[in-house]
């Protein structure tokens, strides 16, 4: 398992691995927001938590179509399916690698981008906490979507269509935590819901992803 994780991280970091693309996308989207809504700092500060959450979510989505498709194309997935590692573990490791290379950098970058959008002071902590709790769910749900569309030639667009509705609850609770945090309200309730969604997704979705992958491999 560790071997698979290390390989995926290595692949992401080497040339052409796409590491940093999601981060760059996140930066660009954030920079474009003031251009489209205007430079008033009060307005930007108000929408900052939501914009940052949406930007992080789209940046996560961006790299999903490579998550399993590359291993599918070069035959690794067939070989992994016949390896001693259960497919459930394989997809979990894949999701973990995706989170480490995409989700975690986004979490770390979010406060910096918060400065650009004039995020109010108390918001930083809750923005980071909510992203830290929410991005693993985004990776796991995304892996499910990637497993559904892995055999398809033009799977990228379909992948977005399938995954985005599944992202709705995570986005709502995650952005709610960040927004309430920024406005100084109690965050306990949405925070618990967000943590619950993440925990349940991580625990249960790998079984669905593995089942779907088995269907696609046959």
């Amino acid at each position: 398992m560790i071997a698979l994780l290390m390989r995926d991280l290595k692949l992401a970091l080497r040339a052409g691995g796409g590491f940093g693309l999601g981060l760059a996308f996140f930066l660009i989207v954030t920079v474009l927001v003031p251009f489209s809504v205007g430079p008033q700092s009060a307005l930007l500060g108000k929408i900052a938590p939501g914009v940052l959450w949406l930007g992080a979510l789209l940046a996560c989505l961006l790299s999903l179509d490579r998550l399993l498709a590359l291993d599918w194309e070069d035959g690794s997935l067939d070989l992994l399916a016949t390896a001693p590692l259960p497919l459930e573990s394989t997809v979990t490791i894949k999701a973990l690698a995706h989170w480490l290379t995409t989700g975690l950098p986004l979490v770390l970058a979010a406060p910096v981008l918060g400065v650009l959008l004039n995020l109010p002071g108390p918001g930083y902590l809750w923005l980071v906490v909510s992203l830290l709790l929410g991005t693993p769910a985004l990776s796991v749900i995304g892996t499910f979507g990637a497993a559904l569309t892995v055999g398809l030639k033009r799977g990228g667009l379909l992948l977005s269509l399938l995954v985005l509705p599944l992202y709705v609850p995570t986005l709502i609770f995650g952005a709610e935590v960040a927004r309430r945090g920024a406005e100084g309200f109690a965050v306990q309730m949405p925070l618990l819901m967000l943590a619950g969604i993440s925990a349940a997704s991580i625990a249960l979705l790998p079984f669905a992803s593995a089942a779907v992958l088995r269907v696609n491999l046959r």
């Binding site: 499910f144 559904l148 399938l162 509705p165 599944l166 709705v168 609850p169 709502i172 609770f173 709610e176 309730m189 949405p190 819901m193 969604i197 979705l205 669905a208 089942a211 779907v212 269907v215 696609n216 046959r218």
Partner: peptide, 28 residues
């Protein structure tokens, strides 16, 4: 048959997330 299997699992997972979305939206 592949399509039937995949959509069936999507329907299952989607149902859970649809219910979650309902609560999330209510809360939101």
């Amino acid at each position: 048959d592949t399509a039937a299997d995949l959509t069936a699992i999507l329907c299952l997972v989607g149902s859970v997330f649809a219910v979650l979305s309902r609560y999330a939206v209510n809360f939101w």
